[in-house]
Amino acid sequence: MDAGAKDGDDRTDEDVRQGGGLTTGEVARRLGVAPTTIRTWDRRYGLGPDAHTGGRHRRWTATDVARLERMCALTATGLAPAEAARLARADAPSDQAPPPPRPAPAQASAGRARSRAGSGLRLGDVRQECKGIARAALRLDAAALDGLIAAAIAEHGLVTAWAEVIVPTLQAVGRKWESSGEKYVEVEHFLSWHVSGALRLAAPPVAAARPGATTVLACVPGEGHTLPLEALAAALAERGIAVRMFGGALPVEALIAAVRRTGPVAVGLWAQSRTTASRPLAQHVAAMEWGVLGARRKPTVLTLGPGWAGQTVAGLPRPPGLAEAVATVQSIVGR
């Protein structure tokens, strides 16, 4: 860690006033954003320091930092940066007129406009929260991302937040990655990791296993996309249903062993791709039996995910989304 980071982060507003202000790097660490983000806000929206010291180094006063904090808070809600900057400048103290945006040469301005358009995400007609989450993901702003995802789950409930906030944002990031030569792969990984953490935090402790009432969830062999299954595990735990989650690419032998050891009432098999969905595997698990002779039981196998399209297994439910999967498992457990 940079030793200067601690010194800068520990300085109080009074220290800033007495000591001539913070450097751009210190401000960035305090706000949890990249220094380039602060410089961009300065250049595009006039959110730079009110006063300049000699030389090329800029010093940010407590008033300057407060304006940037307001900018961060507004953009985190999904507000467009230009509008957020206008409001942040309007909140400046009345005795200090906010500086106007600095003009730039026409050629450089055009280049920045193209860059800005190229880095945006096509979200379409979505909830406002999607825009805030997308911007936090693009900034790699961990604190803001965690807060926004948690707030969406708390406000809308886990199932609705997944379907109407998280999934549209994940899809937009995925499209951006695919269309830009994997340029934004770090954003997708970053967002997925934080969504996974939020799902676990939102779910209550896993219910104790009960005979004939446990649900096993696993990705089929070769399948590593676990997030949708994590959302289902969290939603079932939220409803007090005992879940045993085995994550991605569970080998066939391990899946069979898990089913035999837990005796589940339901087994959810996730396949993102048609190349990983296996009809024989689903049929084999659905035919497994356990229990005393004369009262043997079989699990109900749910074929989950787009990979099962065109691979429908007769007699096995294929719920199309999270809400339907939750309802199906609840119905099975309640029998």
Score class of each variant (00 low, 15 high):
residue 13 D to Q: 08
residue 211 P to F: 00
residue 151 A to N: 14
residue 250 L to D: 03
residue 195 V to Q: 14
residue 197 G to D: 06
residue 246 F to R: 09
residue 167 V to S: 11
residue 96 Q to W: 00
residue 129 E to Y: 10
residue 148 L to N: 12
residue 181 G to V: 07
residue 146 D to M: 04
residue 193 W to P: 00
residue 261 R to W: 00
residue 207 A to R: 11
residue 118 G to S: 12
residue 227 L to N: 01
residue 253 E to C: 01
residue 7 D to V: 07
residue 302 L to W: 01
residue 192 S to T: 14
residue 238 E to Y: 00
residue 308 W to E: 02
residue 99 P to C: 08
residue 188 E to M: 02
residue 320 P to G: 01
residue 119 S to G: 03
residue 171 Q to D: 15
residue 105 P to L: 05
residue 250 L to T: 13
residue 239 R to S: 08
residue 228 P to E: 12
residue 210 R to K: 13
residue 130 C to K: 09
residue 44 R to A: 00
residue 90 A to S: 09
residue 141 D to T: 03
residue 273 S to H: 12
residue 57 H to D: 02
residue 66 A to Y: 00
residue 127 R to T: 02
residue 240 G to L: 05
residue 93 P to E: 02
residue 235 A to T: 10
residue 276 T to L: 03
residue 253 E to K: 06
residue 23 T to C: 05
residue 195 V to I: 14
residue 12 T to S: 15
residue 168 P to W: 03
residue 44 R to Q: 09
residue 171 Q to P: 00
residue 52 H to W: 14
residue 78 G to L: 09
residue 17 R to A: 11
residue 281 L to Y: 00
residue 96 Q to K: 12
residue 231 A to D: 10
residue 181 G to N: 07
residue 253 E to Q: 15
residue 148 L to M: 08
residue 55 G to M: 05
residue 159 V to T: 14
residue 116 R to D: 15
residue 124 G to C: 10
residue 173 V to F: 02
residue 82 A to H: 07
residue 210 R to S: 03
residue 162 W to S: 08
residue 220 V to E: 04
residue 199 L to F: 07
residue 128 Q to D: 15
residue 113 A to W: 00
residue 329 V to S: 08
residue 118 G to P: 01
residue 335 R to Q: 13
residue 79 L to S: 13
residue 129 E to S: 14
residue 60 W to L: 01
residue 264 P to I: 08
residue 305 G to S: 06
residue 316 L to R: 14
residue 269 L to M: 13
residue 329 V to E: 07
residue 277 A to Y: 12
residue 10 D to L: 05
residue 46 G to K: 10
residue 50 D to N: 09
residue 49 P to Q: 10
residue 54 G to D: 09
residue 51 A to Y: 05
residue 33 V to D: 10
residue 331 S to F: 01
residue 128 Q to I: 06
residue 20 G to V: 04
residue 30 R to V: 09
residue 99 P to M: 10
residue 275 T to Y: 11
residue 14 E to W: 08
residue 326 V to M: 06
residue 189 H to M: 03
residue 286 A to T: 05
residue 28 A to S: 12
residue 239 R to L: 01
residue 266 A to N: 05
residue 105 P to H: 12
residue 136 A to W: 04
residue 96 Q to E: 13
residue 192 S to A: 11
residue 3 A to P: 05
residue 105 P to G: 15
residue 253 E to Y: 11
residue 179 S to A: 13
residue 154 A to G: 02
residue 37 T to I: 04
residue 36 T to Q: 15
residue 116 R to G: 11
residue 214 T to Y: 01
residue 216 V to Q: 12
residue 249 A to G: 15
residue 274 R to G: 15
residue 273 S to D: 11
residue 223 E to G: 04
